[in-house]
């Protein structure tokens, strides 16, 4: 029996450790460091209908136990992904969650249709929560009606399991979550980054050209965990926990809170093998405790 297996709706994962969109490229960048096929899955860099160049520099800066980024969803576009990246991932046996981004429902549908026809894509993750682009993104994720509308449209367009990535900036994130569940989402990913700012006192200007950037890293973890806890209590679909997970202990916190899987994000920058170490640590923990991931999920709620 695989102690580490977990289920996200119809999708069975061999273990609960995925890598977060935007921190793992298209997966193959990490192949020199470890076998990425050993992970539960990877979430791709956010894919748009057309390639995007991204925001001007500076795009990143470090903040205490955290960082800000305003990349602006620079990506190769869905066509290049299907042509250049996906065949290799498929051949390697990597479980691929395609994170998709658009500024209109029509574009979301077009990308979903394109990916829905590609073998090797195991799920879609709807990015309705990017804080760093001027149109779309977070606007969809803050409003229950808009979030439900996009979710329903993508639901109709593709048969793939559909995850929706939640913004912590929604006024009522539980309402957005329930709306997405009602519109046919198979799972929720929580949370995306939250907007932060830092000013250089020498230049008296914001350090990021975009002025604000998504706040991520260990400092975000308690907020993410609290939101995951709230969502798990409010919806009946699986929740995938993300936010500042660096070690296996961090990951187990999210499992205990009720997350069915976790995503490792910024930690991969600090240590390219972070996701693998989280996975190995969870495995050792289950072994020591004589338990399984399925048993750990939600145990702190009982």
């Amino acid at each position: 029996m695989n102690r580490l297996a977990t289920r996200i709706g119809a999708l069975e994962l061999k273990n609960p450790v995925l890598t977060a969109s935007g921190t793992f490229g298209y997966g193959l960048e990490y192949d020199d460091f470890f076998d990425v096929a050993t992970l539960g899955g990877i979430c791709t860099k956010g894919l748009s209908r057309e390639p995007r160049a991204g925001n001007p520099p500076e795009r990143i800066c470090e903040t205490p136990a955290s960082m800000l980024n305003a990349i602006g969803l620079a990506n190769v576009g869905v066509e290049a992904f299907c042509r250049d990246k996906l065949p290799v991932l498929r051949e390697r046996g990597v479980t691929v969650v395609a994170n998709i981004f658009a500024s209109s429902t029509d574009d979301f549908v077009a990308i979903a249709e394109r990916l829905g026809g590609e073998p090797g894509v195991h799920a879609l993750e709807l990015n309705v929560s990017c804080p760093n682009v001027s149109h779309g993104g977070i606007e969809f994720g803050k409003d229950p009606k808009l979030a439900a509308q996009v979710t329903a449209a993508v639901r109709r367009a593709a048969k793939l399991p559909l995850w929706v990535k939640m913004s912590p900036e929604a006024g009522d994130i539980v309402a957005v979550a329930k709306a997405c569940e009602g519109a046919g989402a198979d799972a929720l990913t929580a949370i995306n980054t939250i907007r932060g700012m830092t000013i250089d006192v020498d230049t008296e200007r914001q350090r990021l050209a975009n002025r604000t950037g998504g706040f991520s890293g260990p400092a975000l973890r308690p907020i993410a965990l609290r939101i995951v806890w709230d969502l798990v209590g409010a919806v009946s679909i699986p929740v995938i926990g993300i936010g500042g997970i660096s070690t296996w202990r961090d990951a187990v916190e999210f499992l205990l809170a009720g997350a069915s899987a976790v995503q490792v994000g910024t930690a991969s920058f600090a240590d390219p093998c972070a996701a693998k170490k989280v996975l190995d640590g969870i495995a050792a923990h289950c072994e020591r405790q004589g338990t399984s991931v399925a048993e750990l999920i939600g145990r702190a709620r009982r």
Binding site: G25, E58, I60, M67, N69
Partner: peptide
């Protein structure tokens, strides 16, 4: 730079 190998896209 956050990663050093083409992932973070922080070094344009």
């Amino acid at each position: 730079m956050a990663c050093g190998y083409g992932v973070c896209l922080g070094c344009p």
